[in-house]
Write a protein that binds this DNA or RNA. Sequence first.
DNA 1: ATGATAAACGGACCGCAGTCCGTTTCTATT
DNA 2: AATAGAAACGGACTGCGGTCCGTTTATCAT
Lengths: 211, 211
Amino acid sequence: MNTRPLPLADDRSSERGDAARNRTRLLEAAALLVAERGVDAVTMDDVAARAGVGKGTVFRRFGSRAGLVRALLDHSEREFQQGFLFGPPPLGPDAEPLDRLVAFGRARIELVEVQGELLRAAESAAESHYFAPSHLVSLTHVDALLRAAGVGGDTRLLATSLVASLEATLVLHQWRELGYPLRQLADNWAELAHRVVTGTSASARDTRVVT
Amino acid sequence: MNTRPLPLADDRSSERGDAARNRTRLLEAAALLVAERGVDAVTMDDVAARAGVGKGTVFRRFGSRAGLVRALLDHSEREFQQGFLFGPPPLGPDAEPLDRLVAFGRARIELVEVQGELLRAAESAAESHYFAPSHLVSLTHVDALLRAAGVGGDTRLLATSLVASLEATLVLHQWRELGYPLRQLADNWAELAHRVVTGTSASARDTRVVT
DNA sequence: ATGATAAACGGACCGCAGTCCGTTTCTATT
DNA sequence: AATAGAAACGGACTGCGGTCCGTTTATCAT
């Protein structure tokens, strides 16, 4: 239980020359190895060796395996965020909240198709990936969309529940082990989002039809 | 990647005498150690040593750390299942589907209060806990309740999404790291369930009010 | 240039989950 | 009671993530 290492952003400025060089070396080596073997077959020693660097250095830079993987995902993660924060509709701001919400989930699920293993590896951190910046950004975004769509109550918690169903580990399981086409999972997200937004609040528990 | 060891139920009949004896010894030892140190501080070697048994035996019996933990949870898991399958309302069959759904989530979240660490340990299996019997039972139950509440479409997938927000790892995080009272998480579940059940389907996308 | 100092380095080391395989023990059969 | 063969046993062994700490190196002040 250490003091959280990367609360919201990492510095990278005022970094010593060799440190910076080793970071890029490590990232390149890791990317290469992942490309040719798949994430699950790459060990931290492999990465260190390939980068021509000591193992300690890898951990000094990235803290943990999950940290390294997150760094590898950083680029596509930024793109993804750009997409739903500033991009064109239906993902970006020039669309209705509900449409954006649906598009957000679809995009996330599509991301699993190409980066599934990486995303899963990033999630399997012992001390939760729930604190990872990218995850928090998604959460906040969904929260905002819910509120913009007129949903009341504790939208942050509602957002957490929704986002939970997009976890790469789960989606990957449904897709690869259970054989659901990603398309169907995306449709299910749409259904879920739609229902949550159009549904009535639990506090106003009255107008229920007795069939 | 082995052939799935315990697809839906374990035999335990036609088990050799010493095997049976060692199973109970191991479970007792494990329970004891967990009680006095907490799950996270108990290693497989510890359990083997305390039970006076070889390490190989532990893995032969339970397959993995997660498997052992699941065995430890078996009792309370059965109770839980009894509760929502045959117990009194609002959990059991003598209540409205939506009420049962809400009660189910509340019960699950309450379970985290007392067995959170154990539940989390059971979830952190590399090769997914999604195949664990208890998980499948919950899933099927929620699925059935959704259908009984008149929800159409692929209720199985919808159930999966809902159940995802009850994962012990997540609930524990919200409770212990973020400081949400369990009560509030339970209320959020109620809100989610209510909205999903009362919401309209995404396929019928028309009667939307343009504010 | 040179020296002081903090930062970064590297690889031996540790702990733990999970495997392997030679040895022991149960049980069914006669 | 003897025995054969399958099942179970146990603990040394492997592989990997992560840590530790003595050594090296970049940087900055003089």
